[in-house]
Amino acid sequence: MTEPTTLLDVRDLKVHFPIQKGVLRRVVGHVKAVDGVSFAIRAGETLSLVGESGCGKTTTGRAVLRILKPSAGEILYHPKDGPPVDLAGLDKRALRPYRRDIRMIFQDPQSSLNPRLPVLEIVGQCLRTNGIANGTELEHRVADLLRRVGLRPEYLRRYPHAFSGGERQRIGIARALALSPRLVVADEAVSALDVSVQAQTLNLLQDLQAEFALTYLFIAHDLSVVEHISDRIAVMYVGRIVELADTATLFARPAHPYTEALLSAVPIDDPRLRGSRARIRLGGEVADPARPPPGCAFHPRCAHADARCRAEIPVLREVVPGHQAACHHAESLTLRGILPEAA
């Protein structure tokens, strides 16, 4: 096999939201929702962004989709033919061709489908707008898409209220696939679903990935789902990536104390093993992204923090090949994962 090709290269991405006060809307500060995030997505893989609420994973996803305008940084997209483009700097018109290649699956199947439009319109809208299909041709296309996501093609005249949560999510997936995208950003795509429906949806996402050679940027907080679906995982904390590694390594040998704590908090789904795992209890609270502490944002809660952690912001660096971590002590710490080392 050849070297995996990079599909998307995010470099030092920053998204800051101004905090405005008073009648004159004076800017009194910035919420640094995403503050210097770099990662690369390889064609055909599933890269997951995990972290707790407010860590900036959703904002990162939305910046990649250019729903938001990044404050700084580059989002280098490698189109099928031609040189890489920096999506961060493009305006609405220039973005249009790339909107077809990068699509999104939303978290809430309720609010992401316009209740006033039938499925045909919801799924077919992007085909019509991009001048790909119209009239009966559009109906055939949408029916075909519905079949691919496991819904009956006859459903295309129905309205969203006629579907269950899992089926609505399938409609959302059909919409994402309609333009034959290369990258799909799935923002908590299965979090709102029930366990049994979640399993169906995860299987569907994997089948579609294999069928259409899709690349996923999977944003989630449920670590067992993430472990199941991802090739590589990036852990975020207060606007930064603290660790990035392939799934097996991350779960077996985390290199950042926050990852270790996060993993240890995952409930063990076997009552016989109850209490067998040493749980790391994090004290304090997640730092405020408007006023992050100096140095490493995790240091107030970290058991290994020293003077350097309090002063100097650690950069994300390669600890061992393919395993990046943003911790000053990544090499010297022996951290515990929750899965045995792969043979």
Binding site: Q198, A199, E227, H228, V266, D269
Partner: peptide, 9 residues
């Protein structure tokens, strides 16, 4: 059975 199990990957 339908819940993803850690390590069953």
């Amino acid at each position: 059975r339908s819940v993803p199990k850690l390590g069953s990957r």
